[in-house]
Design a protein around this nucleic acid. Structure first.
Lengths: 230, 230
DNA sequence: CCCCTTATTAAGTACGTACATAATATTTTT
DNA sequence: AAAAATATTATGTACGTACTTAATAAGGGG
């Protein structure tokens, strides 16, 4: 069964694994590989594009295909809506809106959006619960200029997360991972010591350069983000 | 210029953005879209597969293409060899091997690999410097059964990271992100308080189910992992 | 010898056809 | 009415051809 792109991909990947093609090396041209493996060039192209998407090979017009001299591990994470994440774990989902205040954006939000001046925003603080226990605390700012309808949405039962994702899709998004201390802000929420390290995912979204929302999602102590490659 | 797959992709993405196609909705069949946009079905297929790869649509045989009812943010991170990462920042790279000891794998490493019993491994502790300052500290275990050659490699000048990546490509890898405290282990290394929160990337790699290496990369205080989507 | 122009190369794309495959829907059988 | 066999459907894949494009290499002129 040599005549499908996945087996071509696996064959090329195996050669790289065996160091037949080593980092920095140039691979045979698509046409040659096609002739060697007895398939059409388009099949090799499909296989190679998959390998290129995974960062296993690099392709350049005229330059050919090569194994990167400095290989990288390309990891892909799916960040779901928090409710889906909790339900996928087989736990019950709970949601508490702690605060909902219109306010001008503070400096760190203004700069996250790349704005030159503060804008009117809606500030939300909410807690997501898994089996009644604090799972993720979110601190969110929503740009009222871009999303005025949010004023009329009841956010005490439906999380802003969910409303936005279904009503205000974004065209651009930055994601930032880092570690922080629970401190006096999050310590009480998770009923933990102020020195407890917490994992933070910060996401900022735009639609055609107009700011939508910026969220800090602070995960409960011990939270890990996991993915498989290959 | 409607006759290329990127413009087809962008048109469909724009329709989703405008909520012409809302979460849960089924899109027209490839053939219909092709007729509407005046291109071949294969062009629509190419566009749709790209959208599916980004998680923007879901495709199922017979079921058709639809906008996911529970959208996710799909973020992709490239984790380079540490030296490349530092040099890409325009900083000078430095490397110090702090410890190199053969030892049976401790429990957390044994379980990370999914092994039933401890194996002989090489334990390394090393520090990567950017502009002479501690950047990433790594705590690494290498499976000697799978990579016996590592015994004869001089790891005082070349990091194990680089040697492995060029000589022992992996076929499978898990990546884990989390937060930890500097504590007495890492506090002295980064010259920081034991309560300082630190960002950790833990990677475990195999080649055809044989364990290669498991690394904890502890980043300096303030380290952030950043990516753009869209 | 260096710079600029021109040729060549190998990947990138578009198209159309034919067929495969996995779901789903329908019909038949028990 | 439930279960099993069968038909239908929309995506998935393979192929071959023709053409485009970006990058490199070769050539020519100052």
């Amino acid at each position: 069964m040599r005549h499908n792109w996945k087996s071509v991909r696996d064959e090329v990947a195996a050669r790289i694994l065996r160091s037949d093609y080593a980092p920095g090396d140039r691979l045979p041209r698509d046409e040659e590989l096609a002739a060697e493996l007895g398939c059409a060039r388009s099949t090799v192209v499909r296989a190679m594009q998959d390998l290129a998407d995974s960062g296993i090979v690099e392709r350049r017009r005229k330059g050919g295909t090569r194994v990167p001299a400095n290989p990288v591990t390309r990891a892909t994470f799916d960040i779901p809506v928090t409710r889906s994440e909790i339900e996928a774990r087989g736990q019950s989902y709970g949601y508490h809106l702690l605060e909902q205040t219109p306010a001008p954006s503070p400096l760190h939000v203004t700069t996250a959006f790349g704005l030159s001046a503060p804008q009117d925003m809606l500030h939300l603080r909410a807690l997501h619960l898994a089996d009644q226990k604090p799972y993720i605390f979110e601190d969110r700012w929503i740009a009222l200029n871009t999303v005025p309808e949010i004023r009329d949405v009841d956010l005490t039962t439906l999380s802003a997360n969910e409303w936005l994702v279904k009503n205000r899709p974004y065209s651009r998004c930055t994601v930032r991972f880092y570690a922080t201390n629970a401190g006096s802000d999050y310590g009480p929420i998770f009923a933990t010591d102020p020195t407890t390290p917490l994992f933070v995912v910060e996401r900022t979204t735009w639609v055609n350069d107009a700011p939508i929302t910026s969220v800090k999602a602070i995960a409960h102590p011990g939270y890990q983000m996991l993915t498989e490659v290959g």
